[in-house]
């Protein structure tokens, strides 16, 4: 399900979703036939509007669907050499998948330091100390506030903590769900800059879910566009940024014509894919 312009991934994929379908409560279909790939060491964005199925896709990968009575009914999720579908969330973290949840979800009554300690449950004490040093180097602000309750941190600091907490598990793939949500633009820029720094320095692959397409397309190499549970477009970040349809509907570049045209566009897109 890709447009004709879709480029061939150059490096081997660390993660590939093949035609997965997710249902909640055995009935309601949340995503249908989502396929995507994250190249090893690469950064990929999954873009789309509210309710398009972005978070559901991430939960399918991390296994956190179980907490919401959701299940992957069809398709394959391949991570390195493992088929993830039957594995517990804990096992997936051990394999190297870290999921930074939407809305940050820090452990509010714990201090930032304790948040990081709790996140090393699957790692040795030695690794924990080393990883904590690394997190505090990336986020010096967390170090300054490491002994105050995480619930009292600012939104930006909580987002940093959520990312730092994910790094404590020593992931190979970092999945971020709306890290820009509710943050001031300068903080979004700062956090995105640190994310790409981590990607470069740690060789960590990143799958970034965003509504804020402008910011996301600045740092990723490829992007997927999801609509009503389907991937409708896949291209390089450059191409997506200059695509007139994307500019119009997701980047706010051109003047939107009217709602009828948008509907028409979506329907047409669906037929074409």
């Amino acid at each position: 399900m890709m447009t004709e312009t879709s480029p061939k991934p150059t490096k081997s994929a660390v993660l590939s979703l093949n035609n997965i379908e997710v249902v909640y409560d055995h009935v309601s279909l949340a995503i249908k036939g989502v396929s995507l790939e994250v190249p090893d060491g690469g950064m990929v964005a999954l873009l789309g509007a509210n309710g398009a199925g972005k978070s559901t896709s991430l939960k399918a990968i991390s296994g956190l669907l179980v907490a919401e009575r959701g299940e992957v009914r069809r398709g394959d999720i391949q991570f390195l050499d493992h088929n993830l579908r039957s594995l517990s969330p804990q096992r997936r973290v051990e394999l190297g998948i870290a999921h930074v949840l939407e809305g940050r979800r820090v452990f509010e009554h714990l201090t930032p330091d304790e948040n990081l300690i709790a996140a090393s449950a699957i790692r040795s004490r030695h690794d924990m100390i080393r990883n904590k040093d690394k997190v505090y180097t990336y986020f010096p602000r967390l170090y300054e506030r490491r002994f105050s309750a995480a619930g009292y941190l600012s939104g930006g600091e909580q987002q940093m903590l959520a990312i730092g907490r994910a790094l404590m598990t020593q992931p190979k793939l970092l999945m971020l769900d709306e890290p820009s949500l509710g943050l001031a633009p300068f903080l979004v820029a700062e956090i995105f800059q640190i994310i790409s720094q981590i990607n470069r320095e740690e060789g960590l692959s990143v799958l970034l879910v965003e509504q804020n397409a402008i910011a996301a397309l600045e740092i990723v190499s490829h992007g997927y566009l999801i609509e009503s549970g389907r991937i409708v477009m896949h291209d390089t970040a450059q191409a997506l940024k200059s695509n007139p349809d994307i500019q119009e509907f997701y980047l706010g570049g051109a003047q939107a014509k009217n709602f009828h045209d948008i509907k028409h566009y979506r329907r047409r897109k669906r037929w074409l894919t």
Binding site: L64, A67, Q90, R105, E114, T169
Partner: peptide, 20 residues
């Protein structure tokens, strides 16, 4: 003990970092 307190704070977040 810190892990247990984390579970009591937010068990979905606890799952997300590999806590059983």
């Amino acid at each position: 003990g810190v892990v247990l307190r984390a579970i009591s704070d937010d068990y979905t977040a606890a799952w997300s970092v590999g806590i059983s």
